[in-house]
Design a protein around this nucleic acid. Structure first.
Lengths: 143, 143
DNA sequence: GTGTTTGCAAACGTTTTGCACAGGT
DNA sequence: ACCTGTGCAAAACGTTTGCAAACAC
């Protein structure tokens, strides 16, 4: 609402979005920097950050501010949750259906108006499970 | 399991824990530093960080790594969720009951073993609601 | 031509670390 | 006496910003 901003078309911005949409890895700004640099060797890290911010403002990119880690970025903006591996730090999409508002809105709000929530899961990714000798079974609450 | 560590009793550690348990404000390390300094003027910020880490390891302190903000600390270790104000950044406890495992464990886990989740709410705190002219009504999803 | 965007480098805020010394046990 | 914990300062880390030049429109 009431926020039209002129955006110029720059190769930097285009390549950043292309690279982000071309991976499922939820890269950090630094990882994206490395990817983009292969195609635009003179790009700077500041440009990556500035464009990610712009793309996020325009709703083309999702920002994943996960607990206790660098911000990661997601080219898929449709709502879904994430799992993070506590061992290697990788982040994956969860294909499971979202929990609806009834479930994720607290009954008591301490006087706040609740606008939304962030839900994030953590555990061990398939690779780290094997590395730690866990049986790759059903995968839910195996401890 | 197999992790006994000798902890010495120091006034710094004691005061840090006392101050943290004596407030409901979920202070940052810097805020705690200011509080502790009033009683121990020569304490250093590094000591605050080191002790918060130790206290967290020992299960006496909870670390709140909220999305896109500095880490805050909570002297209450019993499980509960938090709300953060998107305007002033303050953090409050939610007295509402926790959602149980059924609700917060995804059906599909992408091969991960899920060990837990983090759920955090955001919105406007009572003070900021008034400042923005919101009617202080029931308080749920008022937009 | 105008105003956005870039590359570069410096600054920033939070957290961690190296080190010699103090102090708990 | 041992070795953890402290204060101090510097470094590390991810991110933001100031600036002049480059470029899109």
């Amino acid at each position: 609402m009431a926020n039209y901003k002129i955006r110029r078309h720059t190769p930097q911005r285009a390549v950043i979005l292309e690279e982000l949409c071309g991976t499922k890895e939820h890269p950090t700004a630094a990882e994206l920097f490395a990817l983009v640099r292969r195609r635009l060797p003179r790009v700077s890290l500041g440009t990556i950050y500035r464009n990610l911010e712009v793309l996020h403002e325009d709703g083309l990119v999702r920002k994943l501010e996960l607990a206790g880690a660098e911000t990661r970025f997601d080219g898929t903006v449709t709502p879904h949750y994430h799992v993070r591996c506590r061992s290697c730090g990788c982040v994956r999409d969860l294909p499971a259906p979202l929990h609806d508002k009834l479930v994720t809105t607290p009954l008591e709000t301490a006087g706040f108006s609740i606008e939304g929530h962030r839900l994030e899961f953590y555990g061990l990714c398939p690779v780290c499970r094997v590395a730690k000798g866990e049986t790759p079974d059903a995968g839910v609450n195996s401890h």
